[in-house]
Design a protein around this nucleic acid. Structure first.
Lengths: 330, 330
DNA sequence: ATGAAAGCGCTAACAC
DNA sequence: GTGTTAGCGCTTTCAT
């Protein structure tokens, strides 16, 4: 900037003002300076600017590493959601600092804010850390978490209506004649637990008493799903429907069932969760519960910006929707 | 930092040194200062530190918005690749600034470096911009592009061996008895063009003269693929195999073919590209060409860091591998 | 309408 | 071993 000032024969302060479009500087000086800047390929040093301004239009998006069980970064749904969040942040004119943390290193989550690199945090998953997150809020760190809303939480979450999603899936399966619905997922993960609860509620509402044998926790990994289904079939524990906590898991299950000589949807109806892009191309096309991810991205960012600006922010539960396809229809 | 200095009864420089682990400061002062910092939840302001140091361990990852045709951000392959790049950067101890640009706003690609927010650029796709990218190199901006290597390029690329991938797919299909292989994709995109070339070469090597009718450009969108296949079938243009430029396209094609009463693999063998996670769960499981994405992430980052440190960096072509599954086997 | 100077939070000579 | 000081590139009073 000093160079530009010298070239223009003015003081740096004038250049600063000119580049900021201040009306204090005469129109032609402004034009001349803009010209020089372009000609010499000069752009303002945002780091220095931020230091001086005591701010930075940056949001840290933190992605937990591999929850060991359950959804992780290779899940297309998760990645699409991440894309939506990034889009929403960019659309608001903020920048995105992306980082990944080990699930146990919850302490390091707030690092980008503490070190002044970002003004707020988006945490893409609950990390099974409850109190540490409450703690961040108490320390005044703006944060929004993607995931289930739970009692006693002080941090702000945005997530799909998991209970309702489970209920939609459950009711639909019951309507298709299902009486023994197998849940695929680990209910200990809050989101999955709520999906299961919704599904159970729908069954009970139809006068069906769910069998606990069909609600055992399963990590959503192909091998685990394979083994689980095989062991159920081997033990003669019957089921006429599967509600999987993710589309990926549903896809795996359909493959496994087929190998076991069980037809989908004739013998077993299958419903997944997330409505990933390819769900419609599965064979049979997959019935699933859709979460509005574009909306999620916007809700997350708006909530976070509200906190950063000192306005109150509330958790959001987004509507979920059942997408009926052939995997659950006669 | 001034506060900590006051609390410790030392000068800021001492605190700075202590926090940097300098051996110049006595072990117990260092311990005392570390203690105070932790107690008061103090972390170094990285922005100020970077300003002073004239650097920042940050790499900007730039994702082009929707190439209109072809692969975009909703493609699981693309997202997985992005994940690998981010992992590699994080593993090297650098930070990631993520941004998205319109395909036409190629000028803004270099913004993060020009404004001093990042020291190098990873561009996740060619953007069909050749000269502007060469230009960035001439201006000394460290950059690595994911995509095809093309003659005359001065920028460094990392990509799969597209020609070889196409060749593997082509030879495999020919081995399965295919004589008329339909290519699905737009050869104008360099990566896809090279895949097609490889596939054509394999056919010619087997004494087959490929029919230009089967190489017409198709945007990889479900509707376009549907329409294209239907029009070919309607026009009586026969084919006994499909080589799709992405797994997503292959999945769409399989669905369309099935609706047209054409069986896969009995009537038409299908090979995709990328080996996305779910390819194995398609019905039939998809034969596809795998690109080593973890390796890609590492190659990209190493190449970029080399440039940043002033070392020479060369483009990398990564090996591709055919994964045979039932969609192309009798 | 423009310039001079202070200071954002930090590091690195250079003293002592 | 520790303190003093200058300065990274910018913005913003306060003068003029």
């Amino acid at each position: 900037m000093a160079d530009i000032a010298k070239l223009a024969g003015v003081a740096v302060s004038t250049v600063s003002r000119a580049l900021a479009g201040s009306p204090l500087v005469s129109a032609d000086t402004r034009a001349r300076i803009a010209e020089l800047a372009k000609e010499h390929g000069y752009s303002i040093n945002v780091g220095a600017q931020n230091l001086r301004l005591g701010q930075n239009q940056t949001i840290a998006v933190v992605v937990p590493y591999e929850a060991a069980t359950g959804q992780n970064l290779s899940d297309p749904f998760f990645l699409s959601l991440l894309g939506c969040v990034v889009n929403a942040i960019t659309a608001r004119g903020w920048e995105v600092l992306l980082s990944r943390v080990e699930a146990n290193a919850i302490e390091s989550v707030a690092q980008p804010v503490l070190t002044g690199r970002a003004m707020g945090l988006v945490l893409m998953g609950h990390l099974n850390a409850f109190e540490p997150l409450n703690d961040l809020v108490r320390r005044g760190i703006p944060i929004v978490v993607w995931g289930a809303l739970r009692p006693g939480q002080q941090f702000c979450t945005v997530g799909g209506d998991n209970f309702r999603g489970g209920e939609l899936a459950g009711r639909h399966l019951v309507d298709q004649g299902a009486r023994r619905i197998l849940f695929l997922g680990d209910p200990a993960l809050p989101e999955f637990g709520q999906r299961l609860e919704g599904c159970l509620a729908a069954q009970r509402a139809a006068g069906i008493e769910p069998d606990p044998e069909l609600q055992k926790p399963v990590p959503l990994l192909p091998a685990a799903i394979d083994a689980h289904l095989a062991s159920l079939v081997g033990a003669g524990i019957a089921f006429d429907a599967v509600f999987a906590a993710s589309d990926l898991a549903a896809a795996t299950a359909i493959g496994t069932l087929r190998r076991l000589g069980i037809r989908v949807p004739q013998d077993v109806a299958v419903v997944g969760y997330d409505d990933i892009t390819i769900a419609v191309h599965f064979d049979p096309p997959l019935t699933t519960v859709r979460q509005p991810i574009e909306q999620a991205g916007l809700a997350i960012v708006d909530s976070l910006l509200a906190q950063i600006e000192g306005r109150p922010a509330e958790s959001t539960i987004l509507p979920t929707e059942l997408i009926q396809r052939r995997s659950s229809l006669p």
